[in-house]
Design a protein around this nucleic acid. Sequence first.
DNA 1: CCATATAGCTGACTTTAGTCAGGCATGTAG
DNA 2: CTACATGCCTGACTAAAGTCAGCTATATGG
Lengths: 303, 303
Amino acid sequence: MGPELVAAVRRFNRTVTQRVGALDDEYMASGRPLAQARLLWEISPAGAEVAALRARLGLDSGYLSRLLRALENDGLVTVAPADQVGCDARVRVAALTEAGRAEWAALDERSDEFASSILTPLSEQSREQLVEAMAQVERLLVASMVVIEPCPPGDPRARACVRAYARDIARRFDGGFDPALSKPVHDEELVPPAGVFLLATLNSEPVGCGAVKLHPDAPAEIKRVWVADTVRGLGIGRRMLCDLERYAHERGWTTVRLDTNRSLTEAIAMYRSTGYREIEPYNDEHFAHHWFEKDLTAGAGAA
Amino acid sequence: MGPELVAAVRRFNRTVTQRVGALDDEYMASGRPLAQARLLWEISPAGAEVAALRARLGLDSGYLSRLLRALENDGLVTVAPADQVGCDARVRVAALTEAGRAEWAALDERSDEFASSILTPLSEQSREQLVEAMAQVERLLVASMVVIEPCPPGDPRARACVRAYARDIARRFDGGFDPALSKPVHDEELVPPAGVFLLATLNSEPVGCGAVKLHPDAPAEIKRVWVADTVRGLGIGRRMLCDLERYAHERGWTTVRLDTNRSLTEAIAMYRSTGYREIEPYNDEHFAHHWFEKDLTAGAGAA
DNA sequence: CCATATAGCTGACTTTAGTCAGGCATGTAG
DNA sequence: CTACATGCCTGACTAAAGTCAGCTATATGG
């Protein structure tokens, strides 16, 4: 990592925590302890489950409970079991009262004011430059917050990704997608040592996946590379591919292969640009039009 | 202000306080209370006056004192009167001991690590994009932190600016600059109602100035527009000019004039681009080559 | 010299944040 | 039905953060 890059990031961190971080806190606190204000904000007019709040704010269960009681005593919040039949009666849902919604709206207002206070001193042109640069920073920060880790293919988050993957390709393939016609992939094939399933998460939420099968005496095979459209275009797919290749390479495989459908044009472009070259069909996958192969011994393969 | 712009800034604030703000705190805390760590960091190997620390960190005098005692007890810091003769013996200076410098270096190291941890997951190309966008955001945030306010011309910060202004033009004018040959400007002319002196500050530090003389029965005259080179190119000069014009306009003047030296090319370009047109000499200023005038009744004049 | 301001310090205090060990009701696997 | 896990709760506690009044020594203006 170049030291100038690191220095630039540090300068940014300093300026931004000074200007945005500190003032954000100040704007949040409205005569109310910060933790309470944050909690109120997080509950939002839509309401939220207690467990979700705990996860999002990273609070201790007891502490959160106490904060909720404080807001309840002030008449801003009600906490009650979700009143639907059949759902877990232990789970409780926090909702804003009339007064709570009013205070939430006040916080919302202040957030707007704060954002405006950053833009106001600038010229029209500078404002647009700033907003554009902010959007860019935000995109890339989000990208850098995505974590790619091995995950059992049976994990609910993994299942959710694979379902989303199937939905996506069903929508994109001309003629749709019928899993029954496709070569099946069994969970056991994606569990070490036979292979691996990698899950990409953003704040613990699944946003992408990919898998590799380590065929004995044959090239490794990459399957099910998928990225949620909320984080598409941030290089997650490329990182996923790279991590899968590294996984195979570290375990002694020198070649990876994959098949793909002609309608997945961006994916095909990505394969080509990261060193894959098209080869003759190596299987009879019903939905495949292109087959690719990459030699793992050639490139560096660093992240 | 467009609501999309405000929304974009808010999204940025959210992402950035989450990723940078929270983790920055975490990286700062090294088994030591955050406030102590921040203080240690702020003292830095260069040392700092107690009053300066109080201002920079925004701490209560008593609280700061206690924090300093804590660091002193841990053998990280010494607090002593500045040992120069003739300086205020009440003012005390905090300095790092050997151990303090070691811990400061550790914090420095962690800051580097933190910055790296943001860049590491990204591709080479994304890293450069991120750093570029960060630099842009930082520049513009700094610009938006600059405050322009009226200030008595006798204020030490105002004097410092005017001195810096004189130094700057002395360096740039071909043939140097001799104040004795220039038309003098007296303090009384820059105090309401005769005129005004505006000071631009960044975190209370002076970074620019400008003045306008409200000549009775004659166009107002802009003088001494200067911007420190640390914040040049951020549109501060333009804002200063705009504020001076507004000041004159609000008090009934419809025209402003100014004279300038041919070597100040950026300034001349700025005058031209903000509605000034060149006119015949209206004075015999020794160092002036160009005279400009602007009609304040024409444009909108909004910030 | 006096009155007054200023810089930093100390003691006494409150509030906020956060932790930990249980407790109770509900759910679930055997 | 039992045993155990889970979700949320309360009580008891600690540490950190921050506030306020008053103190001492030095500076400053008359």
